[in-house]
């Protein structure tokens, strides 16, 4: 049984929440209208609409751009797997203690410093044009493969730091507990530290995944016919920028599920922690 007092409180809360919904609705409509009005009233709008938002061009070029996107997707999946493995290895090397491991630790630190600082586009050029330029036997000259290598090199440096942050956020008492049970360093890392660390940095990892999704489009600079390159080809043929907008929207659509997945995962983590 609820008392009159509680019923009155609930009614008040309901009226407040109805009010906030109405306010949100009105302000959204006003904002959208203002944006629409100011864009369409711009003097150049008719021309911009014609060359960027041309529906028939969009429809005609969609298959080619989608074909290119399929290549981006395949590069994305393969690169992400390699990045996660390589980054975990680098982060593991950076947490090793003891003088024996100094060379490996220094190597890992140097790797992160180099590839985190190197602009992706320059890395793409160096790997994509420099490596085959050596004319060594066994070095591939497929732009997709070379572009993928460059992405893996740069992104593993970033993701390794995310992993390391996670590893270092695990309280020393967890290590003490594991070591006191007789687990060695390797087992402590694998069974106690990493499972907790990975869970903690999952949102950051997904963030880097989304960034990788769109940076996959950069392999086009090496000549790979991905979504961006396909859009470029189409737009050159039609004197119209709409294919770029199509490619851009497709990349956005690709990022949405990843974003929702990240939200869902952090909500789930919060629920577990908050017992």
């Amino acid at each position: 049984m609820t008392s009159d007092l509680q019923r009155e409180r609930l009614a008040y809360k309901r009226s407040r929440s109805r009010r906030s919904t109405a306010v949100a609705l009105v302000s959204t409509v006003v904002f959208a209208a203002a944006v629409w009005f100011s864009v369409t009233r711009a003097p150049g709008w008719p021309r911009v609409r014609l060359s960027f938002f041309n529906l028939s061009t969009a429809w005609r070029t969609l298959p080619a751009v989608l074909d290119g996107l399929w290549l981006n997707l395949r590069v994305l999946v393969v690169a992400e797997v390699l990045i996660l493995v390589l980054a975990l290895g680098i982060a593991g090397l950076r947490t090793l203690r003891g003088p024996v491991w100094f060379p490996l630790r220094a190597l890992a630190t140097g790797y992160v410093d180099l590839f985190r600082g190197l602009p992706l586009i320059i890395c793409l050029y160096l790997v994509g044009f420099g490596l085959p330029g050596l004319r060594l036997s066994g070095i591939p000259n497929d732009p997709v493969l070379l572009g993928g290598i460059a992405l893996v090199l740069v992104y593993s440096a970033f993701v390794a730091e995310v992993f390391r942050a996670g590893i270092e956020s695990i309280h020393p008492s967890q290590l003490a507990a594991a070591r006191s049970l007789g687990l060695d360093h390797r087992k402590t890392m694998r069974l106690v530290v990493l499972p907790q660390a990975v869970r903690r940095v999952l949102p950051a990892l997904l963030n880097d995944f989304v960034a990788l999704q769109k940076d996959c489009g950069l392999i086009s600079v090496l000549g790979a016919v991905d979504a961006v390159r396909a859009a470029q080809i189409e737009s050159a043929g039609s004197y119209n920028f709409t294919p770029y907008v199509v490619a851009g929207l497709l990349f956005v659509l690709l990022a949405v599920p990843s974003g929702r997945l990240a939200d869902w995962m952090s909500r789930r983590a919060a629920r577990r922690q908050g017992a």
Binding site: S173, Q174, A176, A177, A178, V192, Q196
Partner: peptide, 8 residues
């Protein structure tokens, strides 16, 4: 340990 240190 004082603070249990169970693996969460």
């Amino acid at each position: 340990f004082q603070a249990f240190n169970l693996f969460p």
